[in-house]
Design a protein around this nucleic acid. Structure first.
Length: 220
DNA sequence: AAGCCTCGCAACCGCCACGTA
DNA sequence: GTACGTGGCGGTTGCGAGGCT
Protein backbone atom coordinates (compact mmCIF):
# COMPACT_ATOMS: atom_id res chain seq x y z
CA UNK A 1 0.00 0.00 0.00
CA UNK A 2 1.47 3.36 -0.96
CA UNK A 3 1.83 6.18 1.57
CA UNK A 4 -1.16 8.48 1.40
CA UNK A 5 -3.59 6.05 -0.21
CA UNK A 6 -6.30 4.35 1.82
CA UNK A 7 -5.07 5.65 5.13
CA UNK A 8 -7.30 7.25 7.72
CA UNK A 9 -6.63 10.83 8.82
CA UNK A 10 -7.68 12.91 11.78
CA UNK A 11 -7.95 12.19 15.46
CA UNK A 12 -7.03 8.82 16.85
CA UNK A 13 -9.57 6.62 18.60
CA UNK A 14 -9.01 4.73 21.85
CA UNK A 15 -9.00 1.47 19.90
CA UNK A 16 -6.35 2.74 17.45
CA UNK A 17 -4.20 3.83 20.40
CA UNK A 18 -4.55 0.39 21.94
CA UNK A 19 -3.48 -1.32 18.71
CA UNK A 20 -0.44 0.95 18.32
CA UNK A 21 0.60 0.46 21.94
CA UNK A 22 0.31 -3.28 21.50
CA UNK A 23 2.47 -3.11 18.35
CA UNK A 24 5.21 -1.19 20.18
CA UNK A 25 5.05 -3.57 23.14
CA UNK A 26 5.56 -6.54 20.85
CA UNK A 27 7.97 -5.15 18.24
CA UNK A 28 9.47 -2.04 19.78
CA UNK A 29 9.70 1.43 18.26
CA UNK A 30 10.64 1.97 14.62
CA UNK A 31 9.67 0.44 11.29
CA UNK A 32 6.46 2.45 11.53
CA UNK A 33 5.46 1.72 7.95
CA UNK A 34 4.96 -1.90 8.93
CA UNK A 35 2.31 -1.10 11.52
CA UNK A 36 -0.50 -1.01 8.94
CA UNK A 37 0.42 -4.38 7.47
CA UNK A 38 1.03 -6.10 10.78
CA UNK A 39 -1.91 -4.77 12.76
CA UNK A 40 -4.51 -3.80 10.18
CA UNK A 41 -4.41 -0.23 11.50
CA UNK A 42 -5.37 2.16 8.69
CA UNK A 43 -2.70 4.74 9.55
CA UNK A 44 0.44 5.65 7.65
CA UNK A 45 3.86 5.17 9.22
CA UNK A 46 4.40 8.84 9.87
CA UNK A 47 1.09 9.16 11.63
CA UNK A 48 1.91 6.16 13.86
CA UNK A 49 5.33 7.54 14.72
CA UNK A 50 3.94 10.96 15.65
CA UNK A 51 1.13 9.47 17.69
CA UNK A 52 3.59 7.40 19.69
CA UNK A 53 6.16 10.16 20.19
CA UNK A 54 3.72 12.92 21.06
CA UNK A 55 1.04 11.09 22.96
CA UNK A 56 1.40 7.39 23.72
CA UNK A 57 5.04 7.24 24.79
CA UNK A 58 5.06 6.80 28.61
CA UNK A 59 7.86 9.37 28.95
CA UNK A 60 5.64 12.20 27.71
CA UNK A 61 4.64 14.68 30.40
CA UNK A 62 1.08 15.81 29.66
CA UNK A 63 0.74 18.18 32.62
CA UNK A 64 0.54 21.96 32.16
CA UNK A 65 3.85 23.72 31.59
CA UNK A 66 5.38 25.07 34.80
CA UNK A 67 6.94 28.51 35.26
CA UNK A 68 10.36 26.85 35.35
CA UNK A 69 9.74 25.12 32.03
CA UNK A 70 8.46 28.37 30.50
CA UNK A 71 11.61 30.12 31.57
CA UNK A 72 13.89 27.37 30.28
CA UNK A 73 12.09 27.32 26.91
CA UNK A 74 12.37 31.09 26.65
CA UNK A 75 16.09 30.92 27.26
CA UNK A 76 16.67 28.07 24.86
CA UNK A 77 14.57 29.73 22.17
CA UNK A 78 16.60 32.89 22.50
CA UNK A 79 19.75 30.83 22.06
CA UNK A 80 18.60 28.46 19.32
CA UNK A 81 15.67 30.03 17.53
CA UNK A 82 12.98 27.67 16.20
CA UNK A 83 15.02 24.50 16.71
CA UNK A 84 12.22 22.80 18.58
CA UNK A 85 13.75 19.33 18.68
CA UNK A 86 16.92 20.67 20.28
CA UNK A 87 14.92 22.73 22.76
CA UNK A 88 12.67 19.79 23.64
CA UNK A 89 15.77 17.70 24.24
CA UNK A 90 16.65 20.00 27.14
CA UNK A 91 13.14 20.01 28.65
CA UNK A 92 12.53 16.62 30.30
CA UNK A 93 9.29 14.88 29.32
CA UNK A 94 8.34 17.40 26.63
CA UNK A 95 8.18 16.72 22.90
CA UNK A 96 9.13 19.10 20.12
CA UNK A 97 5.47 19.40 19.14
CA UNK A 98 4.46 20.31 22.69
CA UNK A 99 7.20 22.91 22.97
CA UNK A 100 6.41 24.36 19.55
CA UNK A 101 2.68 24.62 20.26
CA UNK A 102 3.28 26.06 23.70
CA UNK A 103 5.64 28.66 22.30
CA UNK A 104 3.38 29.64 19.41
CA UNK A 105 0.22 29.93 21.48
CA UNK A 106 1.35 31.30 24.81
CA UNK A 107 4.97 32.22 25.25
CA UNK A 108 5.33 34.17 22.00
CA UNK A 109 2.44 36.42 22.91
CA UNK A 110 3.81 36.88 26.39
CA UNK A 111 7.18 37.79 24.91
CA UNK A 112 5.78 40.11 22.24
CA UNK A 113 4.12 42.14 24.94
CA UNK A 114 7.37 42.37 26.87
CA UNK A 115 9.38 43.18 23.72
CA UNK A 116 7.10 46.10 22.93
CA UNK A 117 7.89 47.56 26.30
CA UNK A 118 11.60 46.89 25.75
CA UNK A 119 11.59 48.54 22.33
CA UNK A 120 10.12 51.66 23.83
CA UNK A 121 12.83 51.67 26.47
CA UNK A 122 15.57 50.96 23.90
CA UNK A 123 14.38 53.76 21.63
CA UNK A 124 14.71 56.25 24.43
CA UNK A 125 18.26 55.19 25.42
CA UNK A 126 19.76 53.88 22.17
CA UNK A 127 22.94 55.94 22.15
CA UNK A 128 24.09 54.85 25.59
CA UNK A 129 26.07 51.57 25.78
CA UNK A 130 24.88 49.00 28.31
CA UNK A 131 27.05 47.94 31.20
CA UNK A 132 27.73 44.65 29.45
CA UNK A 133 28.73 46.35 26.21
CA UNK A 134 31.15 48.52 28.16
CA UNK A 135 32.47 45.55 30.12
CA UNK A 136 33.30 43.55 26.99
CA UNK A 137 34.07 46.59 24.84
CA UNK A 138 31.54 45.73 22.10
CA UNK A 139 30.89 48.61 19.76
CA UNK A 140 27.66 49.23 17.82
CA UNK A 141 29.72 48.85 14.62
CA UNK A 142 30.83 45.36 15.65
CA UNK A 143 27.27 44.31 16.43
CA UNK A 144 25.84 45.53 13.15
CA UNK A 145 28.73 44.36 10.94
CA UNK A 146 28.71 40.79 12.15
CA UNK A 147 26.19 38.03 11.83
CA UNK A 148 26.51 37.82 15.55
CA UNK A 149 23.19 36.28 16.42
CA UNK A 150 23.55 33.45 13.95
CA UNK A 151 27.02 32.74 15.31
CA UNK A 152 25.62 32.52 18.79
CA UNK A 153 22.91 30.13 17.62
CA UNK A 154 25.28 27.86 15.76
CA UNK A 155 27.76 27.77 18.64
CA UNK A 156 25.09 27.06 21.22
CA UNK A 157 23.73 24.25 19.08
CA UNK A 158 27.19 22.71 19.00
CA UNK A 159 27.26 22.95 22.80
CA UNK A 160 23.86 21.31 23.22
CA UNK A 161 24.79 18.51 20.87
CA UNK A 162 27.85 17.79 22.95
CA UNK A 163 30.38 18.68 20.28
CA UNK A 164 32.37 21.17 22.31
CA UNK A 165 34.97 21.36 25.04
CA UNK A 166 34.01 20.92 28.70
CA UNK A 167 34.95 24.53 29.43
CA UNK A 168 32.60 25.94 26.85
CA UNK A 169 29.82 23.57 27.93
CA UNK A 170 30.21 24.77 31.50
CA UNK A 171 29.91 28.37 30.41
CA UNK A 172 26.69 27.68 28.53
CA UNK A 173 25.25 25.67 31.42
CA UNK A 174 25.92 28.65 33.66
CA UNK A 175 24.16 30.85 31.15
CA UNK A 176 21.05 28.69 31.28
CA UNK A 177 20.75 29.06 35.05
CA UNK A 178 17.89 31.39 35.90
CA UNK A 179 18.90 34.98 36.56
CA UNK A 180 15.59 36.72 36.31
CA UNK A 181 14.45 40.21 37.04
CA UNK A 182 11.20 41.10 38.77
CA UNK A 183 8.88 40.40 35.86
CA UNK A 184 10.36 36.94 35.38
CA UNK A 185 12.19 37.57 32.13
CA UNK A 186 15.63 38.61 31.02
CA UNK A 187 15.95 42.33 30.88
CA UNK A 188 18.35 42.75 27.97
CA UNK A 189 17.52 41.95 24.35
CA UNK A 190 19.67 42.80 21.38
CA UNK A 191 17.99 43.12 18.03
CA UNK A 192 20.47 42.52 15.23
CA UNK A 193 20.35 43.51 11.58
CA UNK A 194 19.35 40.03 10.41
CA UNK A 195 16.41 39.94 12.77
CA UNK A 196 18.00 37.44 15.15
CA UNK A 197 17.81 38.49 18.76
CA UNK A 198 20.00 37.56 21.66
CA UNK A 199 18.49 37.91 25.08
CA UNK A 200 21.57 37.35 27.19
CA UNK A 201 24.29 39.94 26.90
CA UNK A 202 26.42 37.46 28.82
CA UNK A 203 26.86 35.74 25.46
CA UNK A 204 29.13 38.51 24.34
CA UNK A 205 31.56 37.68 27.08
CA UNK A 206 30.84 34.01 26.80
CA UNK A 207 31.90 33.74 23.18
CA UNK A 208 35.11 35.51 24.05
CA UNK A 209 35.83 32.82 26.63
CA UNK A 210 34.92 29.83 24.44
CA UNK A 211 37.59 27.56 23.12
CA UNK A 212 38.35 28.78 19.57
CA UNK A 213 37.62 25.28 18.26
CA UNK A 214 34.10 25.44 19.70
CA UNK A 215 33.20 28.79 18.26
CA UNK A 216 31.16 28.64 15.06
CA UNK A 217 31.69 31.86 13.16
CA UNK A 218 29.17 32.59 10.45
CA UNK A 219 31.11 35.38 8.84
CA UNK A 220 30.60 39.05 8.17
C1' DA B 1 -30.45 30.31 23.24
C1' DA B 2 -27.87 30.77 19.18
C1' DG B 3 -24.40 32.31 16.27
C1' DC B 4 -19.80 33.99 15.97
C1' DC B 5 -15.03 34.39 17.36
C1' DT B 6 -10.75 33.08 19.48
C1' DC B 7 -7.54 30.00 21.26
C1' DG B 8 -5.08 25.71 22.17
C1' DC B 9 -3.60 21.61 20.51
C1' DA B 10 -3.37 17.28 17.77
C1' DA B 11 -2.27 15.97 13.48
C1' DC B 12 -0.74 16.54 8.75
C1' DC B 13 2.46 18.04 5.08
C1' DG B 14 6.60 18.79 2.63
C1' DC B 15 11.26 18.61 2.79
C1' DC B 16 15.64 16.82 4.10
C1' DA B 17 19.26 13.55 5.87
C1' DC B 18 20.90 9.15 6.39
C1' DG B 19 21.48 4.19 5.79
C1' DT B 20 21.29 0.34 2.84
C1' DA B 21 20.86 -2.64 -1.09
C1' DG C 1 26.43 6.34 -8.08
C1' DT C 2 21.66 5.94 -7.22
C1' DA C 3 17.13 4.57 -5.90
C1' DC C 4 14.47 3.53 -2.10
C1' DG C 5 12.95 3.15 2.68
C1' DT C 6 12.83 5.26 6.99
C1' DG C 7 13.05 8.70 10.44
C1' DG C 8 13.30 13.52 11.90
C1' DC C 9 12.18 18.33 11.70
C1' DG C 10 9.67 22.75 11.33
C1' DG C 11 5.69 25.00 9.41
C1' DT C 12 0.92 24.86 8.86
C1' DT C 13 -3.88 23.39 9.15
C1' DG C 14 -8.20 22.38 11.03
C1' DC C 15 -11.07 20.72 14.80
C1' DG C 16 -13.24 21.34 19.19
C1' DA C 17 -14.06 23.82 23.39
C1' DG C 18 -15.08 27.82 25.63
C1' DG C 19 -15.96 32.75 25.74
C1' DC C 20 -18.41 36.62 23.96
C1' DT C 21 -22.20 39.24 21.94
Amino acid sequence: MKEGSGYKKGFWTVEEDRILKEYVRKHGKGRWNRVANMTGLKRCGKSCRLRWINYLCPNVNREDFTEEEDDLINRLHNLLGNRWALIAGRVPGRTDNQVKNHWNTRLRKKLEKINKQKNKAIASSQTLPTATEEKFNISQETKTKTNYGASVGATSQKVLEGGCSEGTKGLFDTLLEPTLNNDGYDSSFWFLDDGFNVNAPDLIGLLGQCSPDDFVWNGF
